[in-house]
């Protein structure tokens, strides 16, 4: 089976996630070719064909045009599998391509069991094995689910591609993330508040524990969206990635996007009333308790 793997550029740089796509295709026993809208200056190490469209001409984010380019390659190559990262680029582009190819799209694949892709349900609480009814399958892969292979030093065989389509969506550049005074990426101890804190007044409970431990406090996305904690303390895919010695997750269920931002923590303590919350899967210690009762007791004992 042939696989077409869709690499990504962000801000003029090649993203490493392309190597996860390559690792996945190897696991599927597929013969891979790469697709990239990029420039000849930064190409992935790869032993095979790379279909390259010029980024200066086709834009870094231009989904209608990128779709057209991928459909053109697919027509030539006749792949059985078209693979994207489940990223802001991939989840945007994949359904367009799947529609154009009349193919099933299987989103956010985390594993493959006997050739059948597995995807998360309800934010990782359950998993689903999905079979496509179409011969050609489009897939997006969860970040980090498939390891990086050894990167070959060889340069790919470049096949230039082009389209005259210009698309209806115009991209006017990036806006940097809000920079605040808190750099959680360097903190050794982080205590984070999740939706389970219930109301904004309870942020103080989390802040007090962080102080008693000599660390910083952070928050998961719902708490930041509710404006209970400022955005520059958000941990997760769209916030900061952290790797403290101790991470205390209070009332955080453990959505994939949050786990992605804190899974490199050395020691994880989760405080949650739900024994089955996905955070329990990566926690070294899960304290099954109501944080509003437990955390103040813990803080008081630590202060002594």
């Amino acid at each position: 089976m042939k696989a077409l793997l869709i690499a990504e550029y962000r801000d003029g740089k090649l993203l490493d996630s392309v190597y996860e796509l390559i690792a996945f295709a190897e696991q599927m026993g597929a013969e891979s070719s790469l697709f990239l809208v990029g420039s000849g200056e930064a190409l992935p190490g790869f032993n095979g064909d790379l279909y390259l469209a010029d980024i200066a001409r086709h834009g870094e984010f231009n989904p209608e045009v990128h779709k057209e380019l991928i459909l053109g390659v697919a027509k030539q190559l006749q792949p059985g599998l078209v693979v994207f990262s489940h990223s802001s680029y991939g989840w945007d582009l994949a359904p367009r391509v799947a529609f154009g190819l009349k193919a099933a799209q299987i989103s956010e694949v985390v594993a493959v069991v006997d050739g059948v892709p597995v995807v998360p349900v309800c934010n990782g609480k359950m998993r689903r094995e999905v079979k496509a009814k179409t011969e050609l399958r489009v897939m997006t892969l969860q970040a980090g689910a498939f390891g990086l292979p050894e990167i070959p030093a060889t340069a790919p065989q470049v096949i230039p591609i082009d389209t005259s389509l210009s698309g209806r969506i115009s991209f006017d550049g990036y806006e940097e993330a809000e920079k605040g005074g808190v750099d959680l990426s360097k903190a050794e101890i982080i205590v984070s508040a999740g939706r389970g804190i219930g109301k904004p007044e309870n942020v103080a409970i989390i802040r007090d524990l962080a102080k008693a431990l000599g660390g910083e406090y952070g928050a998961s996305r719902p708490v930041v969206d509710a404006e209970w904690v400022e955005h520059n303390r958000q941990v997760g895919t769209t916030g900061q990635s952290v790797s403290p010695k101790l991470y205390v997750a209070c009332g955080i269920s453990g959505a994939i996007q949050h786990l992605a931002g804190m899974k490199r923590s050395e020691f994880v303590v989760a405080i949650n009333t739900d024994k089955d919350a996905p955070i329990g899967e990566i926690a070294d210690v899960l304290v099954v308790a109501d944080l509003k009762q437990f955390v103040p007791v813990l803080t008081e004992k630590l202060q002594k």
Partner: peptide, 20 residues
């Protein structure tokens, strides 16, 4: 164009300690 063949709960890693 696709169907779910099976849904399941993820296996617990088992290494974590649960305190109650």
């Amino acid at each position: 164009r696709q169907e779910t063949v099976k849904i399941s709960f993820p296996e617990k890693k088992g290494s974590g300690l649960i305190l109650e």
